[in-house]
Design a protein around this nucleic acid. Structure first.
Length: 343
DNA sequence: AAGGCGGGGAC
DNA sequence: GTCCCAGCCTT
């Protein structure tokens, strides 16, 4: 076994994480669910979502039989909503094409919706004892530092090199412990900001530590200034109900319910005349808010339209009327939840 | 090969 | 404020 893997596995016995909610099981459903939730999402954020999700969907068959709207509602606030749609699609695929049983080989797992090479390897290893390398953010950071890998790890060339490293370092046995140890080291010792090198089992063989480059590696993503976009959001209510729209499956907040939007340059009363000319409404601007995404900034100007009845507002596509006291149970984007909480 | 896709934690 | 997280998918 490589010195790298050996050090990692020995470190994990006393310093790894052993009691996360998705550990100490080989149930592929629970492991799969955790891996999807953990994509680009930190452990502490996932834990309450994971518990709620399992309580509502305790097994694959239950999830596959549920309407996708319920899945979206339980995912609301977790972000990257394509994960929820793919999760539901994957459950149905496993039911119909694999007889309700997850395939065991990493290559077959990676063919399922929402599951790429790294997630497939994690499932194959933890649930089925297969031997496959992972390459998530933690592993990339550990490998870049330990082996002094230059370049942005998201670039194709660096990623190819890191996959080769990950494959070459994979031990012959104890693969589940090894993989968990890699993630635990990256999450608790070899962290992005302030790595705890004195506590690190890799320190004697770490290139970044030896060359004083710990804070330089891995190299940061090349910067670009995210654009600012603007929108109006309409809170159309009769005091008891609220008008929401279903967003298209692709794009931002895909598949979620949200508030109707209109152009920031259109005055609210002009927009209202266009969509509901005959319906009298009291128009009230609400406090604006700024929502920051990874790739752009959205300035939202919410406006409340108070009406007597929501029965006929024909010009709004995909509209749905919901009870105000039930909006917490719907799949709504995080900023929409904030607007409604103060509206 | 590059960009789209959320929300929140850490600093 | 910035950066990035148990990445995947589309173009």
């Amino acid at each position: 076994m490589s010195d790298f893997a050996d050090r990692l596995i020995r470190w994990h016995r006393h310093h790894g994480r052993h009691d996360l909610p998705w550990q100490n099981t080989t149930d592929p459903y629970r492991i799969w669910l955790s891996e999807i939730m953990l994509q680009q999402t930190q452990v502490d954020t996932v834990i309450p979502y994971y518990a709620r999700f399992l309580a509502r969907f305790p097994d694959l068959a239950t999830l596959a039989a549920a309407p996708v709207d319920e899945v979206m509602a339980l995912w609301s606030g977790l972000g990257y909503y394509a994960r929820a749609r793919n999760l539901h699609a994957c459950a149905r695929t496993v039911m119909t094409e694999h007889g309700g049983q997850f395939p065991a080989r990493a290559e077959a797992i990676a063919a399922l919706p929402g599951i790429g090479r790294s997630t497939a390897a994690a499932i194959a290893t933890f649930a089925f004892g297969q031997r496959a390398a992972i390459l998530d953010g933690n592993v990339k950071r550990v490998l870049c530092r330990a082996f002094g890998v230059d370049g942005f790890p998201g670039s194709v060339a660096v990623e190819r090199r890191l996959w080769a490293l990950a494959d070459a370092l994979l031990p012959a046995t104890d693969v589940p412990v090894y993989i968990q140890a890699q993630m635990d080291l990256g999450a608790t010792v070899c962290t992005r900001g302030k790595p705890r090198c004195p506590d690190c089992p890799m320190q004697p063989i770490c290139v970044a530590h030896a060359t004083g480059r710990t804070t330089e590696l891995p190299e940061a993503r090349p910067r670009k200034r995210p654009p600012v976009r603007t929108t109006h959001m309409a809170v159309i209510t009769d005091g008891m109900h609220l008008l929401l729209v279903q967003r298209p499956p692709k794009g931002i907040w895909g598949g979620l319910l949200s508030l109707p939007e209109f152009d920031r340059d259109t005055p609210p009363d002009a927009w209202w005349r266009a969509v509901a000319a005959d319906v009298p409404a009291q128009v009230t601007p609400l406090d604006g808010l700024r929502h920051t995404f990874t790739h752009y900034v959205l300035d939202i100007a919410p406006v409340r339209f108070t009406v007597d009845t929501l029965d006929a507002i024909p010009a709004i596509e995909a509209a749905r009327v919901c009870a105000l006291d039930a909006v917490d149970e719907l799949g709504l984007p995080a900023p929409v939840r904030r607007i409604l909480a103060s509206a």
